[in-house]
Structure formats: structure tokens, C-alpha cells
Design a protein around this nucleic acid. Sequence first.
DNA 1: GAAAACTCTTAAGCCATCTTAAGAAACGAA
DNA 2: TTCGTTTCTTAAGATGGCTTAAGAGTTTTC
Lengths: 188, 188
Amino acid sequence: MRNMLRQYIERKIQISDEGFDDFFSYFKMIELKKREYLLEEGKICRNYYFVSSGLLRTFFIDYKGKDVITSFAVENWWVTDIESFILQKPSQAAIQALESSVLLAISHDDLERAYAQNPMIDRLFRLITQNIVIALQNRHNFYLKKSSAERYQGIVKTLPKFVQRIPQHMLASYLEMSPEYLSELRKK
Amino acid sequence: MRNMLRQYIERKIQISDEGFDDFFSYFKMIELKKREYLLEEGKICRNYYFVSSGLLRTFFIDYKGKDVITSFAVENWWVTDIESFILQKPSQAAIQALESSVLLAISHDDLERAYAQNPMIDRLFRLITQNIVIALQNRHNFYLKKSSAERYQGIVKTLPKFVQRIPQHMLASYLEMSPEYLSELRKK
DNA sequence: GAAAACTCTTAAGCCATCTTAAGAAACGAA
DNA sequence: TTCGTTTCTTAAGATGGCTTAAGAGTTTTC
């Protein structure tokens, strides 16, 4: 678990044993059971989380009372409500474990301390955040360019293992279509 | 122009006169006439641009041959194709001036040099990139939650000056609807 | 191991938004 | 000032994807 984070970081920046130890000392381990909430809508997201194992979803409730899933997080990804975390204001979204999960959490204040202590942590989070922007933009462009059928085929082709781990109606929500319509598309 | 960038930066990080001079020395001024392209689809985006004055749009062509505008940039914003810039790979999008514009450009290599020279530049771009993520997510959530009519009303209310500067069919593209439909909505 | 709670499918009817087309108005270049 | 180009509007017809509803599987819970 410690090593997973270490290896993750070393793919992004150079860090000494000591530098890593200092950084790692800020993290706390969190275990979630299936269906447990990491963050509820309206609460402030206090931590940035590294997913060591498991699967989570970020979603909000739209004006009709339906879930809209905006992202999933699996092993080796980070999860947080970025706006809520950065500005320490109430979140619009909720985060829930879909499988029992193990996370490493660093608080907002501790992350600020880490930035102050070691400039390479600034770089690490610059790189992570850049990757988030690229992923968000690619997703947005893909959705604009493709029909529903192509969105479904696209995700099945690029992330087949991932598709198997989540219920079909959640995939529909993520793909921005109704579960009934996804079911119909699958027939073909 | 130099001062605009200075003031922008000072709102994000602390920087000395010397630190700013070093950083500023990497920038080149670029002037664009109305309709001129800053980046064409398929080319590599070589620079990160700070908009000193003017207005630009980022867009791509979808499978039906229609423009889809993904963002606008005005004074005091940054503009680039982030994926193309970071990975130095061909861009999927184009960037075009909608008004004659003045930009400050820093190349990929020079920005890497600036990161190496001064860790505060890492922090600056971490903060800029975080803001981009927040803006992208807010936009995405807003679009998911609202009908076409509400999207139009929302942008008119929050960015009235901005709406006046762009042709209506481009606003329609940005709002992800046809210009005819937007025209119909405006009647009400 | 039965009841309750999810999950997936099927099908009919509906509606928000698009497409196509064509004319009017505004703008821009020479 | 005029001609061509761009922009905006209007309206009719088409459609992708949604809603509703109901039933059949499948898990979970006690």
C-alpha cells in the first residue's frame, strides 16, 4: 500500500527516501465497505484520496432526483471533489464505494504543508492535475463527437475489465443515457 | 502587457522582481488579426499563451463537419490545447482569434526550463491547472443538470458582456445546441 | 431459504432538439 | 454604394433517446 503510492509517485517525479517518508507520514489509511460513503453531498471534502484498492463512484443528484455519475476511481487513481477540497466549500457531489476499498488520505492542511516543505510535491500535483484536465477534455470531446451507440462501444473496447466491474445502469448513467436505452443498444 | 501578466501572477504566487524578469524573458509577443489561426487541427501546439487582449475560440470539427466550440479565451486567461502542448502531439482542436488579439507565448521547452529554475512556477501552473479542472467540472455538471433553455439563461445571466462579444451561432455551438433552436429559445 | 431489494429487459408512446430550407437583415470589402 | 458573405429567424417535418410500466432474473438480508 505504501509501495503502491511510492511507485506511483516515482513515475511522476524524483523523490528521495526521506522526502517520501516525510510526505507519506501525512497520510492516513481509510477502509470503506461496499456502499459506504466517502463524501456526502453538501459536506466539505476534507481529504485528497489515493485509491489503494477497490472501486468508487462520484455522482450528484439532478433536478429530477436521478443519479448522474461523473467519474469512477479504481486502484492507483486519486479521488476527491476537487472544487470542494481546494476551496474547502460544500460539495455538490457525493463519493461512494462500489466495492470495499482501501484509501490513503491526506488532508487539505497537510497537503499545504507538504507543498511548503518540498517543491517537488507541487510538481507532483501539477502533473496529476494536468492529467485530470486531459482526461476530462478527452471525455468531453468524445461525448460531443459520438452517438450513444458509439459511446457504449468505445468504453467496452477501451476499458473492458472496468465495464465488468460496474452494474449496467451505472455505466448508463456515466455514459449519459437511460439504462433502458443502453439495454436496447446492447441487443445489437 | 508585461504588467498584466505580473499582476495575474501575483494573485497566485509570491515572486520577486528578479524571478519575474527571468520568467518573463521566456515569453514572446504574438499578434493575431481577426479570423487568424493560433493553432490548426493536426499541428502540434508549441506554446502556452496568455491572452493580453482580444478573444479566441477553441473548437474541433465533428463527424458531420460541423464546428463544436469547446471554450473561449479572453483577457487574463490562458489558452492552449493542453493535451497537444503537454505531450507535444498533434492537436484534435483548432484555436482561432475572433477579434484581433495580443498574446504572450511561452514554448514547451522554455516552460520546462522555468519549472527547473524556479519551483514557484510549478506552483503557479498547479494553481492554474486546478482552476481549469474546477471550471471544466462546473461546466460539465451544469450541462448535465440543465435543459437547453436553462443553459442559455444561465450564461446570459452570469456572463452578459461575454455573450455580446460573440456571434449567436457560436454561442449555440458552445451551449451544445443548434443555432436555429437557440433562436427559437430567445423568442420566449 | 423466503422476503426484500436490486438489476436487466422489452415495448409503446412521447417530446426535446435537430434537420432542412428559404428568406431577411446586417456586415464587410473593394 | 453595391455585391457577396455572414448571421439570424421562422417553420415544417424527422428522430434519437426518454418515460413509463411491468415482468423476470438475481442478489442480499435476516
